[in-house]
C-alpha cells in the first residue's frame, strides 16, 4: 500500500512538472526540451527565497510561479516565437542549446552541489494509518496535483481562453481571421507552461533533489509522460504520470537491479503500438 501511495505521490509530482510541457509541446506543438530548465529555475528560486531570504514555503510557491512565468515570457518574446514554424529538429536543437546554457548558469551561481531545502514543520513528518504510512508532504503533493489537474482541464475545456487556445493551435490563420489575438494567446500559454514547470520544480526539490544537472536528468521523465500520455491532453498526462510514477517507485522498490529500465521500456513499447500516445488526439498538423 505504501508503495502505491508513494508511487501516486511521485506520479503527481511528475504530473505537476510535465503538465507544463504537455501545454507547450502538446498544445503549441513546440518540442521544448528546455522544459526541465524552467523546472530547475523554479527550484533554485524557491531555495533562494527560503534559505537566503527566509520567506515561508507556502508564500514562496506563488512567487516561484510568477518568476518562472516572467522568464518564460521573456524567452518566448525574444527567442521561442521565432521558431514556432520551424521543424521539430530545429526546435530540439535550439532547446538543447538552452539546456546546456542553463546548466552552466546554474553551475556558475550555485555550484555543483545539491541544494538543501528545509520544509516547514507542518508539511514534514508522517502519520500512520493501519497498513499505510502517509508522508504529509506527499499528501500535500497529491492534493496540489489533483487541484491543478482539475483546474487546467476546466480551463482548457470550459473557458473562453481555452477555446481560443485550441482554435489558435489547430488553425492559426482562421483563428486570426476570427479576431483571436493568436500572439497573445501563445504568450499566455507559454507563461502558464513555464509557471507550472517552475512550481513543479520547486515542489520537487524535496523528492528529486536539485543540482545543475537537473534538466538533463529528468527531462526524459517529462518527455516520457507526454509521449505516453499523448500530447495536448491534461487527462492523458495525469494518467501517464500516475502509471510512470507507480511503475518507477514499484520497480525501484521490488527490483532495484533493473532501475530506470522499466519506464524506458514502457515508453518505447507504448510508442510502438500507439504512436500518438495512450490518449492522444490524432495529430493536427
Amino acid at each position: 500500500m505504501t508503495v502505491i501511495f508513494d508511487g501516486i505521490a511521485s506520479g503527481l509530482l511528475l504530473f505537476l512538472i510535465s503538465v507544463g510541457l504537455s501545454v507547450t509541446l502538446g498544445l503549441m506543438n513546440f518540442v521544448n526540451l528546455a522544459h526541465g530548465s524552467f523546472a530547475m529555475l523554479g527550484g533554485y528560486v524557491c531555495v533562494v527565497l527560503l534559505n537566503r531570504l527566509g520567506v515561508p514555503f507556502l508564500a514562496a510557491l506563488p512567487i516561484v510561479a510568477i518568476v518562472s512565468a516572467l522568464v518564460g515570457v521573456a524567452l518566448e518574446r525574444t527567442l521561442y516565437r521565432r521558431l514556432y514554424g520551424a521543424s521539430d529538429l530545429d526546435q530540439v536543437l535550439f532547446s538543447i542549446g538552452l539546456v546546456f546554457m542553463s546548466i552552466s548558469i546554474a553551475h556558475y551561481f550555485f555550484g555543483a552541489q545539491q541544494q538543501p531545502l528545509q520544509l516547514p514543520a507542518m508539511l514534514s513528518g508522517q502519520f500512520n494509518l493501519p497498513g499505510l504510512d502517509v508522508g504529509v508532504y506527499r499528501l500535500f503533493l497529491i492534493v496540489i496535483g489533483l487541484a491543478i489537474a482539475v483546474g487546467l482541464q476546466w480551463m482548457i475545456a470550459g473557458t473562453r481562453f481555452g477555446a481560443q487556445l485550441r482554435a489558435a493551435v489547430d488553425n492559426p490563420r482562421t483563428a486570426r481571421g476570427l479576431g483571436i489575438d493568436v500572439d497573445r494567446v501563445f504568450v499566455l500559454t507559454f507563461a502558464l507552461g513555464s509557471a507550472l514547470a517552475g512550481l513543479g520544480g520547486a515542489l520537487g526539490v524535496e523528492m528529486l533533489g536539485l543540482d545543475p544537472e537537473f534538466p538533463v536528468k529528468y527531462i526524459v521523465y517529462f518527455l516520457i509522460v507526454v509521449a505516453v500520455g499523448g500530447s495536448g491532453n491534461i487527462k492523458g498526462s495525469l494518467y501517464a504520470s500516475l502509471i510512470i510514477g507507480i511503475c518507477d517507485v514499484a520497480g525501484k522498490y521490488y527490483i532495484p537491479q533493473v532501475g530506470a529500465f522499466v519506464i524506458y521500456a514502457v515508453m518505447v513499447v507504448t510508442l510502438i503500438f500507439r504512436p500518438q500516445g495512450l490518449f492522444g488526439r490524432t495529430a493536427a498538423k
Partner: peptide
C-alpha cells in the same frame, strides 16, 4: 557547456 549551448542556439536561429 555554456558556449556550446549558445552556439547551438545561434546556429539554429
Amino acid at each position: 557547456q555554456f558556449w556550446l549551448g549558445a552556439l547551438l542556439v545561434l546556429v539554429v536561429l
